[in-house]
Simulated assay, not measured.
Amino acid sequence: MTKILVTTDLSSASKAGIRFALQLASQQETELIFFHCFQALIPTTVHQGRIETALKRQTKSTLHKLERFISSAIRTSRYKPGKYRCAVLEDLSPDSAILQYARESEVDYICISTRGAGELMKFMGTHTSKVIEKSTIPVVVVPHTYRSKKVDRVLYASDLGEVEKELNVVSRTAQNLEASVDLVHFYYSADEKMEAEVNFPRWQKKFPLLQRLRMESHNLNDDFAHQMERNVQKLTPGLVVFFTHPKTGWFNKWFSPN
Rank of each mutant, 00 (worst) to 15 (best):
S135I: 01
F251Q: 09
L89M: 14
L99Q: 02
Y79E: 09
A54Q: 13
A73G: 02
T44Y: 15
D9K: 12
Q204G: 09
A179T: 07
I112H: 02
L55Q: 00
C111D: 00
K149F: 05
R75Q: 13
K122M: 08
S158I: 04
S189H: 05
F207D: 00
L41A: 13
Q204I: 12
Q175H: 08
K15T: 06
I42H: 05
V169A: 08
K165S: 09
R202W: 08
P257V: 04
H127K: 14
T53A: 13
Y187T: 08
H36D: 07
R172F: 01
Y187L: 07
T173W: 03
I110W: 02
L24M: 12
Q23V: 03
T59F: 06
R115V: 10
L209N: 00
Q48L: 04
E178C: 08
S180Y: 06
A13Y: 14
E178S: 15
F242G: 05
P246Q: 03
V6P: 11
D91M: 04
K205E: 12
W254I: 11
L24K: 11
P246A: 03
V181S: 13
S96C: 03
R85P: 01
P138H: 02
K83C: 08
D91H: 13
L209F: 00
S189Y: 03
I42V: 15
R50N: 10
N258R: 15
P81T: 05
L155H: 05
F186K: 01
P94L: 13
V151M: 08
S26H: 08
R212H: 14
R172T: 05
Q27N: 02
S14L: 06
F69I: 07
V131K: 06
I33T: 08
V232R: 06
R68C: 03
V170M: 10
S14F: 04
T44K: 12
V241Y: 10
D108C: 02
C37V: 14
S26F: 03
K15P: 00
F69C: 04
D9A: 12
D182Y: 10
L120F: 14
A25S: 15
F20N: 02
V46H: 09
L92G: 06
Q58S: 03
L89W: 11
P246K: 10
S96P: 00
A54I: 07
P237A: 01
C86I: 12
E162C: 11
H226Q: 04
T30E: 09
K205P: 00
Q28G: 03
V154R: 01
D182I: 12
T244N: 10
V184D: 02
T8K: 07
T145K: 03
P257L: 04
